[in-house]
Design a protein around this nucleic acid. Structure first.
Lengths: 341, 341
DNA sequence: TTGAAAGCGTTACCAA
DNA sequence: TTGGTAACGCTTTCAA
């Protein structure tokens, strides 16, 4: 490997001082035209690429934003990540994404990694963390944004939706529509899903309809195929009249399984999903769902981070509830969400 | 902001030299138990987080792998990224993902950014690059892996599938099944899509069936909704007997639009997608598609990169064809892919 | 097993 | 507008 080209090499070739090269690269207009040209030529001739580690060390600025998501695999996080990229890249920030694989321990490591990189803000999915994670984030003195859920005690900015209430409202809508045996389907138990389940449980209890045999789940990551398998568990105890599924993947699989078994949707069984993924509107029958706003959430999260960064005001605190909406399609009767409360 | 905690602070508190702290952190077993305990305590007490920029600068190693994808939004890249993460993280590499937004210019910037970070390998979607991108990658002397397509002149390792042939085979299958008016649907024109279209065109020409009025497209990113809109364009010239859609999103939308218009699938019109996304098997009717192997491709790409990294052999060259398969479901009649040739 | 000294490649600060 | 000097916080020698 031929010796690496550094700023000094460029400076020598252009017959200027290293610091002038540094300036010419970062802020061309403060260097005279002549030198700038000499420098540009030298850079091209040598194929010089600046060493960002050195730059970060010297300037104590990383121009990087740390983002922690539980998985890259789920499209709801892709939409959110896309929004983050769209806000940060144009203003010169790099986005560093780390995958916590739904584990609080890995999340703690992720925070360490990101702080080690001296990211200038951290945006994390979820509001439950290990004690040490919280401490690290608080001590870091950088903007911290927690997303997707609402926090009792936000570390910094929190933007999300009330998952418990969403689960409650989804279930109540079905109950209000006249269903008594309202079932519940779930896959892996992540924080958001668990909150929605709590909402389901409360709604059923409040209506005096709760029964363990109405809840089916399987510890696997959400997929359409899983929805079909979990739905099939009802063959033992008898099928409910309506089912609230923890997300649209499960809902679609559940719906297909019902139809395969000869149950008509929604006449024999109503099906309600969650997140309103694009395919929901194109399934047959079209799938009712609770719309969440992942892209917008990412956008606002990024904007809030930038706001704090620009104010230089480290750690503002705020909770932003982005809400959700019931989207009624063919897989359920016409319903609406009960008012606040 | 209280002064930042450095290795020196830890060293002082633990009453050892800084270098011993450095060693204890990277390689605990080469430090005596007593010192290690003192150091661990000091680290915890101070909340010390190592500065990775300094570490990278001093060691000239980034432990980072650069990955360039055209978008984060499409699930085919999520699956691929997930595989890359799963291989690299356990062996101590960080994965840095950059989004080129389907632009060769942004790809060039992405390469610059990544090289500036001194990533130890670069994995990029696609085989077409600007001249400068190619030069930068070649000069970098690090492993370069190009994916998703097959290259005439790979920069380093190339792992993908023959997109032209896949498009050709998909179209030929429909022709072999007896269809004459075989349509084609496409959204945005990315490299892979364009190759598949070329395959379609050749197959139609070879069969003497080509006609511009059979090809419909709209310059928007692929979505189910777009599939419906583009399909609707056939209302003017009359609908084809079969349609090859550039991906499953378009195919699902197209299928729904046909059914909305009272066309039966596959009796009135056959529909073939591409990529075999999960929902294809759960649509009604179930959607025939060409299965590609994104997860496996990511896995192999990562493993190849590691192989070169471990051999210290910078830039091996190789082309790996990962293939594809026709998956026949209800949206087409029974078909098979023509043999090689 | 531990430590001292000398960088790594850039930028901040102050001067010219 | 340009340049000299001293960091930035860690790791790599080389010694002990």
């Amino acid at each position: 490997m031929s010796r690496k080209i550094t700023l000094d090499d460029v400076a020598k070739l252009a017959r200027v001082s290293p610091i002038t090269v540094s300036r010419a690269l970062r802020n061309p207009q403060i260097v005279s035209e002549e030198l700038r040209l000499r420098i540009d030529n030298a850079v091209k001739k040598l194929g010089y690429v600046p060493n960002i580690a050195a730059s970060r060390l010297a300037s104590a600025r990383s121009h990087a934003i740390g983002v922690i998501v539980p998985t890259l695999y789920n499209v709801i996080f892709s939409e959110y990540l896309q929004a983050l990229h769209e806000v940060f890249l144009p203003v010169g920030f790099q986005v560093v994404v780390v995958n916590s694989r739904y584990s609080l321990e890995e999340e703690e490591n992720a925070v360490r990694t990101l702080l080690g990189q001296r990211v200038e803000a951290i945006i994390v999915v979820g509001v439950n963390h290990t004690d040490l994670t919280r401490r690290l984030l608080q001590q870091s003195r950088i903007p911290v944004i927690e997303t997707f859920q609402l926090a009792q005690e936000p570390i910094g900015i929190n933007i999300g939706l009330d998952q418990v209430r969403a689960g409650y409202d989804a279930t109540s809508s079905l109950i209000k529509a006249g269903y008594r045996r309202v079932g519940f389907l779930m896959g892996n138990r992540d924080e958001r899903a668990t909150e929605r389940r709590r909402g389901y449980e409360r709604a059923m209890e409040d209506a005096g309809l709760a029964s363990p045999s109405l809840m089916k789940s399987q510890q696997q990551s959400s997929s359409i195929a899983l929805g079909a398998r979990v739905m099939a568990q009802f063959k033992q105890d008898g099928f409910p009249e309506a089912v609230f599924c923890i997300d649209d993947n499960l809902a679609l699989g559940a719906m297909q399984e019902c139809m395969r078994l000869g149950l008509r949707v929604p006449d024999d069984i109503a099906i309600l999903g969650f997140h309103d993924l694009e395919f929901a509107a194109f399934a047959s029958p079209t799938l009712s769902s609770i719309a969440t706003h992942r892209y917008e959430m990412g956008k606002i999260a990024a904007e809030q981070a930038l706001r704090l960064l620009n104010r230089g005001a480290g750690t503002g605190q705020d909770v932003i509830d982005i809400g959700y909406e019931l989207v009624c399609r063919q897989s359920t009767p016409d319903m609406s969400i009960a008012g606040p409360g």
